[in-house]
């Protein structure tokens, strides 16, 4: 997930989740750039007030088997079908992923 934050709240090490554009739509900094200490000064010079940075990535968080199992159980209770096709399996995964995000938010 990404978050829209004021530049004053940006910190070195954060990753841009969306490019920074000037008023003409030209890219000043592309998405994916990791912020360094000098960037804050640049943003002020460019008149940028808000930036989008990457939030906590589920992939980078350690998820216990127990938590994953719990999420699968919660989602399974909401469906009365078995995921067979590639699309359905992916849908199931997304449902579980969303529940994991909820569980992680709650545990914080």
């Amino acid at each position: 997930m990404s978050n829209l934050i004021e530049i004053e709240k940006s910190e070195p090490g954060m990753t841009l989740a969306a490019p920074i554009l000037n008023r003409y739509g030209q890219v000043l900094l592309p998405s994916g750039v990791k912020l360094i200490p000098g960037h804050l000064k640049m943003f002020r010079t460019w008149g940028i007030k808000l930036i989008t940075v990457k939030g906590v990535e589920l992939e980078e968080t350690v998820i216990s088997e127990e938590m994953k199992k719990k999420a699968e159980e919660i989602f399974s209770a909401r469906i009365s079908w078995e995921a067979k096709s590639d699309f359905e399996k992916s849908l199931f995964e997304m449902g579980v992923k969303k529940i994991l995000l909820n569980l992680l938010k709650k545990s914080k």
Partner: peptide, 8 residues
């Protein structure tokens, strides 16, 4: 809060 099966 149910998720129906997608039509095949």
């Amino acid at each position: 809060d149910l998720v129906p099966e997608p039509n095949e």
